[in-house]
């Protein structure tokens, strides 16, 4: 233990209890993951029964037609959703943080709505909406409806994250840029954008994760014979769990971790440290 421990640093019994508790939390978090990873290599159809080491579930994942289709759908949706909701969410954040306009407070409150209302409510709303819209405009449910739904709630998440970052920005920075011969656009491009980039990257990561993860809303607005990876996995479970699902889960887990790592790297390189 260091000798210059601060006054707030716990000691003695308190310290022991807190440390033990922290470890418990970690075990609680990571033990299931460990079990998942181990059994994704198990050569036994029954989940939870070890049957020797195999990588066959992973090769099955790669070759399983409906599974790869669902994965492809998920990825395509996630990419479009991320791009669109990052652009719109950032614009909403800028508008709310920078401009005073009529109805700003209402707009502000409404923007938080998708975060607050339950998924099921949102799903029912969107389903009704799309059913009506399909009658009038005649489009089929699937890629478009899922993408639109994901964008609808991700704009809120992105704008909340970006706004938090913008709120910490000194108003004088943009003025200083314009005083130094930058146009409005250049001031945004060279000063504001780099400053809020960590927020945007965080928002993008969040949007992508939420889109890849979503089951409830997607299930409501999807069309017949159309599935995303989590929705398909969910339907598989109803037929019975195999280590194939474990393998799929591990792949999804690794992908999420890569995304997080990537976003950290991006923030370090592009964002810099806030003042």
């Amino acid at each position: 233990m260091s000798t210059n421990a601060g006054i707030t640093e716990p000691r003695g019994v308190t310290r022991g209890v807190l440390q033990g508790f922290s470890w418990l939390v970690y075990v609680f978090f990571y033990a299931p993951i460990l079990v998942l990873i181990i059994f994704s290599f198990s050569d036994n159809r029954n989940v939870g029964v070890w049957g020797g080491f195999t990588t066959s579930w992973y090769s099955e994942f790669v070759t399983d037609q409906p599974l790869t289709t669902a994965l492809g759908n998920s990825l395509r949706i996630a990419v479009v959703v991320t791009v669109v909701s990052v652009v719109l969410g950032t614009m909403a954040a800028l508008a709310l943080e920078r401009f005073r306009f009529r109805g700003r407070q209402v707009f502000d409150a409404l923007l938080y709505l998708p975060v607050i209302i339950p998924d099921v409510t949102m799903a029912v709303m969107l389903l009704l909406f799309f059913t009506q819209a399909a009658k009038w405009f005649g489009f089929s449910k699937g890629f478009a409806t899922i993408t639109l739904s994901h964008i609808a709630f991700n704009i809120s998440f992105v704008s909340i994250v970006v706004r938090a970052r913008l709120a910490g920005m000194d108003d004088n920075l943009e003025e200083a840029a314009m005083d130094l011969y930058a146009s409005r656009w250049q001031a945004f491009r060279h000063v504001t954008l780099p400053f809020i980039m960590p927020g945007i990257a965080g928002g993008a990561l969040l949007a992508m994760t939420l889109s890849l993860d979503d089951v409830v809303i997607t299930q409501f607005v999807t069309g017949a014979g159309w599935s995303t990876l989590p929705v398909y996995v969910f339907s598989l479970i109803r037929k019975g769990v195999t280590p194939l699902i474990n393998a799929v889960s591990v792949v999804m887990l690794v992908a999420s971790m890569v995304l997080v790592a990537l976003s950290l790297v991006v923030q370090r390189v592009r964002g810099g440290s806030p003042a």
Partner: peptide
């Protein structure tokens, strides 16, 4: 005239240096 079109420059009270 906008600030970027004027032959003047400003030293701000809080400096407003670009942190990144």
């Amino acid at each position: 005239l906008p600030p970027n079109k004027r032959p003047v420059n400003t030293v701000f009270q809080n400096y407003a240096l670009f942190p990144h």
